[in-house]
Simulated assay, not measured.
Amino acid sequence: MRENITTVSSGTLPKPQMRGLLARHLRFHIVGAVLVSLGVAASYKFGVAEPRKKAYADFYRNYDSMKDFEEMRKAGIFQSTK
């Protein structure tokens, strides 16, 4: 027999609480799921999205599209321009 089971003085096990059991467990798991999803969203925002936006802003701050076009035209990438 298991040692860690609590027994009533008469030697029988107490009845488990069945009424509202699903609601109590769902409430606990829904709160946990919301907290985990908020944590994942925040870590994605600050770990991926913000550095990506900063990298794009840094790239386009000094980007010259006409200079890039001329370099690609001289390299022969475009077939319609010479």
Rank of each mutant, 00 (worst) to 15 (best):
S9I: 03
L38N: 07
K15N: 04
A42Y: 15
S9H: 04
I30R: 15
L13F: 01
F28H: 11
V40Y: 07
V36L: 10
N4A: 03
A41D: 02
V8G: 00
S37C: 15
S37V: 15
H25A: 12
A33I: 02
R24M: 05
P16D: 12
K15G: 04
T12Y: 03
T12H: 03
G11H: 01
P16W: 01
I5P: 00
V31Y: 04
P16Q: 03
I5Q: 04
T12A: 05
R19Y: 12
L26I: 14
S9W: 11
A42H: 06
P14Q: 01
E3F: 05
V36T: 09
H25E: 14
I5W: 05
E3W: 04
K15F: 02
Q17M: 03
E3Y: 04
I5K: 05
R19Q: 13
R27M: 12
L26R: 14
L22R: 13
S37T: 15
A41S: 13
R19M: 07
E3K: 08
R19I: 10
R19A: 11
H25F: 10
S10I: 01
P14Y: 01
V40I: 15
V40H: 02
S10D: 15
V8I: 02
R19H: 07
A33F: 05
A33C: 09
R19F: 08
V34I: 15
V40S: 11
S10C: 10
H29G: 04
L22T: 04
R24L: 09
H29Y: 09
V40C: 11
L13C: 00
